[in-house]
Every structure is written in structure tokens, then in C-alpha cells.
Amino acid sequence: MNILRQVFILISINYIGNLLSGIFGLVIPGNVLGFLILFLLLFSKIIKPIQIEKVSNLLLFNLTFLFIPSGVSLINILDKLKSVWIQILIISILSTIITIIVTAFTIQLLMGDRNE
């Protein structure tokens, strides 16, 4: 019963995010809005991590299965991607470098100068 309650909490938050996104016509997808709502509920300690721990760990452990539909979709449009693979490669490399740099500066900013 405990796992069922945890699943219900996560599905309810996801549903609320999708509902709010649909009602207000937001640019943010409902799933992302659901994650933001979950973050706020966890941050404000309305929901404690232990209340969703088992299902969260189960989803994280099986996360690779959630990427299978995306991989199959990419294989289905592989002939279209062949003409733009260089652009995709360049964008992937540049976005990775930018992400690393922004992450490094954010960590430095949040940690402050601890080397002094």
C-alpha cells in the first residue's frame, strides 16, 4: 500500500502540472511544470523525501527504459538526420562545453572562495 500511495503522489503532481499547463496555455510543458511543483513541495517540506523514496528509486534505477522510445524514434528518422549530422554534432559539443562552463561558474559562485 505504501508504494501505491507514493505512485499516487507522483502521478497527482504530474497531472496537476499538465492541468495547469493546459488551462493557462503555458509554454512550459506540463511534465516540467510537474517537476517544478514537486521540487517546491519537497523544498518547502510539504512532501518529505521518504514519502516518495521507494518509487523514486525504482524509477531512477529503471531510467534507461524510459529512453527507449526516444531511441526508436531517432532510428525511424535516421535518413533525415544523415543530412544534418555535422550540425547536430557541433551543437552537441558546444552545448556540452557551455553547460560545463556554466556549471563550474555556478559552483564557484555558490561555494564562494574557500581557497583563501
Rank of each mutant, 00 (worst) to 15 (best):
1 M>R: 05
1 M>D: 09
1 M>K: 07
1 M>L: 06
3 I>K: 09
4 L>P: 04
4 L>D: 07
6 Q>Y: 10
7 V>L: 15
8 F>S: 13
8 F>T: 13
8 F>P: 01
9 I>R: 10
10 L>G: 10
11 I>D: 05
11 I>E: 07
11 I>W: 09
12 S>T: 12
12 S>L: 12
12 S>K: 01
13 I>D: 01
13 I>K: 03
14 N>W: 08
14 N>D: 03
14 N>G: 12
15 Y>V: 13
17 G>A: 08
18 N>T: 14
18 N>M: 13
24 F>K: 08
27 V>K: 06
27 V>I: 02
28 I>F: 01
31 N>K: 10
32 V>T: 13
33 L>A: 04
33 L>T: 02
34 G>R: 06
35 F>M: 12
37 I>M: 08
37 I>P: 05
38 L>E: 03
38 L>R: 04
41 L>Y: 00
42 L>D: 14
44 S>T: 14
48 K>W: 08
48 K>Q: 09
48 K>C: 01
49 P>F: 09
50 I>F: 01
51 Q>L: 13
51 Q>P: 07
51 Q>E: 15
51 Q>C: 08
53 E>N: 14
54 K>C: 01
54 K>F: 09
54 K>V: 08
54 K>E: 12
55 V>A: 01
56 S>R: 09
58 L>A: 12
58 L>T: 10
59 L>K: 12
59 L>E: 12
60 L>S: 07
60 L>A: 06
60 L>I: 00
61 F>D: 05
62 N>E: 04
63 L>N: 14
63 L>K: 15
63 L>D: 14
64 T>V: 13
64 T>Q: 10
65 F>P: 08
66 L>S: 11
66 L>R: 06
70 S>H: 12
71 G>T: 08
72 V>R: 00
73 S>V: 03
73 S>A: 11
73 S>H: 04
74 L>F: 11
74 L>S: 05
78 L>R: 10
79 D>A: 10
79 D>H: 11
79 D>P: 02
80 K>Q: 11
80 K>D: 05
80 K>E: 02
80 K>H: 10
81 L>Q: 06
82 K>P: 00
83 S>P: 00
84 V>L: 07
86 I>C: 00
88 I>K: 10
91 I>D: 06
94 L>I: 13
96 T>N: 14
98 I>K: 10
99 T>A: 08
101 I>S: 01
101 I>G: 00
101 I>N: 03
103 T>D: 11
105 F>V: 03
106 T>L: 11
106 T>N: 09
107 I>W: 04
108 Q>E: 11
108 Q>K: 14
110 L>T: 04
110 L>S: 03
110 L>W: 01
110 L>M: 03
111 M>E: 15
111 M>F: 14
113 D>W: 09
113 D>M: 08
114 R>L: 12
114 R>G: 07
114 R>A: 13
115 N>L: 13
115 N>K: 15
116 E>N: 15
116 E>A: 15
